[in-house]
């Protein structure tokens, strides 16, 4: 990784996912210094772990975009979906 890598926790899921794919492709290309490949592998494992965690602990984030009378908008937190399997009648 040429540029200084961002801490994994600061990456969005998609960024982390994209970086992981790039790392794997770079490793698969096979023209990497051994030290660099070890570094990449470590980073890849870290990304993988973080991505897995995010998948297992993911919570839906919902917000509502409200329009004020003056035409400006305001983003307020909204209710996430109720995913309990109870019958909502």
């Amino acid at each position: 990784m040429a540029q200084e890598a961002k801490p994994v926790a600061e990456l969005t899921y998609k960024e982390a996912s994209t970086e992981l794919e790039q790392i794997i492709r770079a490793l698969e290309s096979g023209d990497m210094e051994l030290e660099a490949s070890l570094e990449s592998y470590t980073r890849g494992v870290e990304l993988l772990k973080s991505l897995r965690e995010r998948l297992t602990t993911a919570e839906q984030k919902v917000s509502v975009l409200l329009a004020d009378v003056d035409g400006s908008t305001q983003l307020v937190p909204g209710e996430p979906a109720d995913t309990t399997d109870a019958l909502n009648l």
């Binding site: 899921y13 995010r54 998948l55 993911a58 919570e59 839906q60 984030k61 919902v62 917000s63 509502v64 975009l65 983003l75 909204g78 209710e79 996430p80 979906a81 109720d82 995913t83």
Partner: peptide
């Protein structure tokens, strides 16, 4: 419409399918 069942359907569908998707409701 934020008052109908549709918005909840969408939220629930995405909550089950992929909670990583952030939803912004615009009524």
């Amino acid at each position: 419409s934020l008052s109908g069942a549709v918005i909840n359907d969408v939220k629930r569908t995405l909550a089950r399918r992929n909670p990583l998707v952030e939803i912004v409701c615009v009524g």
